[in-house]
Design a protein around this nucleic acid. Structure first.
Length: 270
DNA sequence: CTGAGATCCTGGGGGC
DNA sequence: TGCCCCCAGGATCTCA
């Protein structure tokens, strides 16, 4: 599932490939996956646009267009954004295709069709409900403290809540909590002082290392060039039920928190 | 406000 | 071995 490091890797690849490109044709094969502001037609509005830049916010890829609008893509679990050369065939489950002037195509594929592309008006506050970027300057100890304060919800559930901190998904929530030595079920508000700071630094450390390794490919994540990541080889606990904890050797456990599989070490996460 | 639960999909895993 | 059923998972909406 693409989380912050995977989306960052995709956005970097798309930036290298797409800045300056012109969109000459748009094909939507599944209407719900390509949304436009009410009264506007996705295909018509996008045709003739030029791509000025590609960035990431939380788990969204944002493409800045010459008109001042943005194209914001959520990949959810199985979505893919891949640049294809003219001779390459479509990926399976390709549902939106942006044809570029030079013959390449930006393909949006998603077998489960949960992903969405949305055309956003200039200055539309589409990300107003998202929390701070964990790799941004605003993610200070003080800010993190204010986010956790008095919350009884398990820290794992809070980390998954995009309104609190943006971009963390199930894999990196599990890995950050393991690195910090914190039990996933612990009430968020109980984390103070050194433990809270350890978690904040662990989140940053895990996300940065995962970006360096171009993300985690558990089942089908690929980057903008169609290549797999490598962080799956560095996972300490995620998906490793029964294996030995890399730190203490105790078997990894699995529970369910906030409806999600949660892997952790009962020995060294307190 | 907060947390729980339903919803959307389908490949793949588990169970028989 | 083969087939069928069930369910994970992110964001969003509804409900208590």
């Amino acid at each position: 599932m693409p989380e912050l490091p995977e989306v960052e890797t995709i956005a970097r690849g798309l930036r290298r490939a797409l800045v300056g490109a012109e969109i000459v044709a748009v094909e939507v094969r599944k209407a719900k996956m390509a949304q436009a502001p009410s009264g506007l037609d996705f295909v018509r509005e996008l045709r003739g646009e030029r791509i000025l830049g590609v960035d990431r916010r939380a788990k969204y890829v944002t493409i800045a267009l010459a008109s001042g609008r943005s194209l914001v893509t959520s990949l959810r679990m199985t979505g893919r954004l891949v640049v294809q050369r003219p001779e390459q065939p479509d990926f399976p489950a390709t549902y939106v295709v942006l044809a570029l002037a030079d013959g390449r195509r930006l393909a949006f594929a998603d077998v489960r069709t949960f992903g969405r592309m949305r055309l956003i008006e200039p200055n539309e506050p589409w990300d107003a409900d998202l929390g701070p970027e964990p790799l941004g300057r605003a993610f200070t100890g003080e800010r993190f403290g204010a986010i956790l304060a008095k919350r009884r919800t398990p820290i794992k559930a809070l980390l998954l809540d995009q309104r609190r901190v943006a971009g963390i998904g199930n894999i990196y929530a599990c890995e950050s909590l393991w690195l910090a030595g914190i039990r996933p079920s612990r009430p968020a508000g109980s984390l103070r002082g050194p433990a809270r700071e350890r978690l904040r630094r662990s989140i940053i450390d895990v996300l940065e290392r995962a970006i360096e390794m171009r993300g985690t490919t558990v089942d089908d994540y690929v980057d903008a060039e169609g290549l797999k990541g490598a962080f799956q080889n560095a996972l300490a606990v995620y998906g490793r039920l029964g294996e030995g904890c890399p730190r203490c050797g105790s078997p990894i456990r699995r529970t369910v928190i906030a409806g999600r599989g949660t892997w952790w070490c009962g020995q060294c996460q307190r």
